[in-house]
Amino acid sequence: MSDTVTTDKLYLAVGQEAEPFTFPPLTRTDFVKYQGASGDFHPLHHDDEFAKKTGFPSVFSVGMLQAGLLATYVTDWLGVETLRRFKVRFADQCWPGDELTCSAIVTEVEETEQGRRVVLDLFCRRQSGSYALKGDAEFLLP
């Protein structure tokens, strides 16, 4: 097993960190747009009055919205066509106004007969420092 990968335009090594990216603050409109795309119309994610009656301070994001942002971040870097596995664990709720910063670190690099296998640890943090998501992904680069 090697601890580095070189592609035409990309050199990767175990321990290397990707450039973090901070998305614009989440809005209620983002929540509703995601709900429309996913078909999950639970009122906790768009009806402030309902959310408050249920004990929450406000509406909050569907966790898969953050997962989608994290997936976009990492596939923009290494390419969606090379993605082989993407896994996340939901860690904290996200609220209107939250700014999410995604980051990744290379944990494994291996030359295989099929290509260069790269495994990453993934993170999506709220501006408060808490993790909204943690996960990992595997890519098979040419």
Rank of each mutant, 00 (worst) to 15 (best):
T4M: 09
T4R: 12
V5T: 06
T7D: 06
T7W: 07
L10Y: 04
L10M: 12
V14E: 11
G15C: 09
E17W: 05
E17M: 12
F21R: 14
F23M: 05
P24E: 11
P24Q: 10
T27H: 06
D30E: 05
F31Y: 09
G36Q: 12
A37Q: 07
G39F: 05
L44H: 03
L44N: 02
L44P: 00
D48L: 02
E49C: 01
E49M: 03
K53W: 01
G55A: 05
F56S: 10
P57H: 03
V59K: 00
F60L: 05
Q66W: 00
A67W: 00
L69Y: 13
L70R: 02
T72P: 02
D76W: 03
W77V: 13
G79Y: 09
E81C: 04
T82Q: 14
R84H: 08
R85P: 00
R85W: 02
K87C: 03
V88N: 06
F90L: 14
A91Y: 00
D92K: 15
P96C: 08
D98V: 01
S103Y: 01
E110Q: 15
T112H: 09
G115M: 07
G115D: 09
R117M: 12
V118F: 04
D121L: 08
L122D: 00
R125T: 11
S128G: 02
S128L: 09
S128V: 08
S130R: 14
L133M: 03
L133S: 00
K134R: 14
K134F: 03
K134W: 04
G135L: 05
